[in-house]
Amino acid sequence: MTGLGKSLRWPVLILAIIALAVLPTSLKSYGVYILTLWAVYVIAGMGLNLTVGYAGQISLGQAAFLGIGAYTAGLMAKLGFSYLLIVPASASICFLVGLGLGFPALRVQHHYLAFATLGFNMLCFLVFRNEEWLTGGTFGMNDIARPVLFGWHFSRAADFYQLTFGITVVLAVLMALLLRSPWGRAFAALRDNPIRAESVGISTTFYTLMAFAIGAAYAGVAGALFAPLVGFIEPASFTVTNSLAMLLMVIVGGQGRFFGPALGAVIVVLLPEWLRFAADWYLAVFGFMIVVMMVWMPGGLLSLADRWKRP
């Protein structure tokens, strides 16, 4: 980036955040819903970007964590817990399950890891679908209420969006701090060269587990927002296809780039909406567009900036 670009970075970022925070006042409720969904996916995508983009692991199971977070939130809301407890609980449970999923990652690498995480996602789907006493089975869980915090009701679409967006910004700041800390450097070392990392005292075991667990915890928070957003959760929202969609978000945006998931989520959440002019054809167009986009820029949208920099 040029000097001018660099000095403009902060003002542009702050303006973008303000604009996104007040945007819903000019949108209809469906627009606000889509925008909130975008923010939820950005959170889950940031987590996956840590696992995949920064720590160099492969995960095809992020939707399972979104599901675990959502079901945890749904169940706790039914039991009357405060939302102040629900969000940390969803995050912690996903953190622990993520640790568990990290263990196969220590044994298997690359494509095997892709399969292991994919199998994990399918297993979670089966549990969501079959354990009716807990999850409501295929019928799912209905009427999950919007949260109440300190006596403030977030039931209006715009209010709930602002809550979600606020949490997204806080989590983004935390992620940025994590990536700037020595941990961020250790994740990159793990991704770039695990053998060298071990030889300079960086425990690949510890950081692999952490990359999975923190990535999962982000999806857990996303799930805890997803449940009250849609008000109704069912197993079909947490399939492998959704995990692939989240991976798509990270890759299309640009893996290992901070704003990759935010941009990628625009493509995954909004592009299908914009393509509605194509009526029935839109999913077909969407699918082939992904192929073309990958072939044209395998490094993601944000890699285009690099291409212009160094022609």
Partner: peptide
């Protein structure tokens, strides 16, 4: 190492810090 083993995407300075921080 006999073959090159650096953290390719990290800067030189970050490579050195990574080698000592743990």
């Amino acid at each position: 190492f006999q073959s090159l083993q650096v953290f390719g995407k990290l800067s030189v300075r970050d490579n050195l810090i990574a080698a000592g921080q743990e």
